[in-house]
Simulated assay, not measured.
Amino acid sequence: MTLETLRIKEELRTLIDDYATLGDEKKISQVMDLFTPDVKYDVYMNNSLISTVSGRENMERDFNKHAADVKTYFTINGQHKVIIDGNVATGISFSQLKMIRENDGKDILSDYSVRYEDNYVFQDGKWLIKERTGYFLIIETKILSN
Score class of each variant (00 low, 15 high):
Lys81Thr: 02
Phe63Arg: 12
Lys81Ser: 01
Ser110Trp: 10
Val31Cys: 08
Ile139Cys: 15
Lys126Leu: 01
Ala20Thr: 04
Gln123Phe: 11
Glu4Arg: 14
Asp18Lys: 05
Asp24Arg: 11
Ile139Trp: 13
Asp118Val: 03
Glu131Asp: 07
Val70Thr: 03
Phe74Asp: 01
Met32Lys: 14
Asp118Glu: 10
Phe122Thr: 05
Val114Phe: 02
Ser145Cys: 04
Leu15Cys: 13
Val43Tyr: 08
Glu117His: 05
Asp104Lys: 13
Leu3Ser: 15
Tyr41Ser: 00
Arg56Met: 10
Tyr19Cys: 04
Met99Glu: 14
Val121Arg: 07
Lys40Phe: 08
Thr5Trp: 13
Thr5Glu: 15
Val114His: 05
Val121Ile: 12
His80Ile: 00
Gln79Gly: 02
Gly23Leu: 12
Arg7Met: 13
Gly23His: 11
Leu6Met: 14
Lys9Trp: 02
Ile138Trp: 15
Asp107Tyr: 14
Tyr120Glu: 01
Asp118Cys: 03
Ile100Ala: 00
Thr52Asn: 11
Gly105Trp: 13
Gln123Arg: 12
Asn119Ser: 12
Val121His: 13
Leu15Met: 09
Ser93Asp: 04
Asn77Trp: 01
Trp127Ile: 00
Phe94Ala: 06
Met59Thr: 12
Thr14Asp: 09
Leu144Asp: 10
Ile129Ala: 01
Tyr135Ile: 00
Tyr73Ala: 00
Tyr135Ser: 10
Lys71Arg: 07
Ala67Lys: 05
Arg132Met: 07
Asp107Asn: 13
Tyr112Lys: 06
Glu57Leu: 09
Lys126Tyr: 10
Phe136Pro: 05
Leu128Ile: 01
Tyr135Gln: 13
Phe35Met: 07
Asp17Ala: 09
His80Gly: 00
Leu109Ser: 06
Arg101Gln: 12
Met59Val: 13
Gly86Gln: 02
Leu109Cys: 11
Ile129Gln: 04
Asp118Pro: 01
Ile8Thr: 15
Val43Ile: 12
Ser113His: 14
